[in-house]
Nucleic acid binder design. Sequence first.
DNA 1: TGATGTGAAGCGGTTCACAGCC
DNA 2: GGCTGTGAACCGCTTCACATCA
Lengths: 210, 210
Amino acid sequence: MYLRCLNTLSAGGLRTVSSGSLAKRFHLNSAQIRKDLAYFGEFGVRGVGYDVHALRDHLTKILGLDRKHNVGIIGSGRLGTALAHYYGFDGANFEIGALFDSDPNKIGKTIGDVKVFDIKDFSSIAKRDNIEVAVIAVPAADAQNVLDLVVDAGIRAVMNFAPVPLKVIDDVKLKTVDLTTSLESLAYYLASDANGKNPKPNSTRHRKRI
Amino acid sequence: MYLRCLNTLSAGGLRTVSSGSLAKRFHLNSAQIRKDLAYFGEFGVRGVGYDVHALRDHLTKILGLDRKHNVGIIGSGRLGTALAHYYGFDGANFEIGALFDSDPNKIGKTIGDVKVFDIKDFSSIAKRDNIEVAVIAVPAADAQNVLDLVVDAGIRAVMNFAPVPLKVIDDVKLKTVDLTTSLESLAYYLASDANGKNPKPNSTRHRKRI
DNA sequence: TGATGTGAAGCGGTTCACAGCC
DNA sequence: GGCTGTGAACCGCTTCACATCA
């Protein structure tokens, strides 16, 4: 997020920022900014602030965005293909190397520039194309199997869009984006809003013990 | 998430669960479960546990999922249409009432069962079709304008997929899902992994003051 | 002077541990 | 005996406040 802020500032021609001005500009807290940045090193100059370009370069390197990552998407349904396009465009940091599916009607097709492979060939294709990140965009019922498969193939970083909690070994990073509960949380807001506005649980309750 | 767990258990024919068994089954903490549920009322029976069906009904009501919500999606690009299908299928809780776009080539088309309207007509269509939730799936540069527009039209709950921090008035609920930073966080994991495995920042640093 | 880097305090959410109840 | 509901302890992250330094 800081990286995105810095890119905005850089595009505006700014050479230097203080944590205070950064905070004001992007509705953040200046102490938080300093703590976050100091965690990785001493990038600032007292009395001056941070050099926009130098800081951006530092963060880019820290985040591992100074080189391209190949991504494989499992599930070439609507969500999978939409993600393929989304991440394909995006920055130059990620490249969608391959799509995978188990549906014979889809295998062999090309979506955008990306070929759809048989999920059975995941391991060999992943090795051949140096795929480091897997994106799971399959039905919930298949997600755990797919996860196990990509982990077995040596993948260490997985993004999961299936709305199920998945189990994974410790040294694999799993990031789940749950589009269903995200939307449901909005329904909760509307519901609690319709009633008593405030969180409102438990106005009159409980024989309290003294 | 609890609701999903309960549905699974219910499908398995279970009538009653304790926080302990629920925790074990879904890799959660039992005290957390009890605290969460107790926040909304006393749903359990000591010595027994929770009634699966009754608890599910309670949670469904609390989350506002006991009635259908109409959703409008702004942006009929690939992500917007993918989301329209995703949420259209899903449960019976949400219904995609309309898509909106500013591109004349898209306005008037029908995607799935959903018509694409001119974004200029958002307010009137939203009122006519009783749309309560807006999903923003437009380019980052347009997101704030779209947000302001839907809020002006009386929408109180917004889900944003554009990778920008947006400003919104207090009594509107804004939920941002940032697909870009989600993926970038995986790159960071791979990068820190490649180096020293551990979070590893600052091994040798700082003249400490005494 | 002005801004960083950072101990210390504060705060919200999580976990422990147990009294209370079935 | 078994499990809930909950005060108390705990823990990590956020914010404050200030010593430090260009």
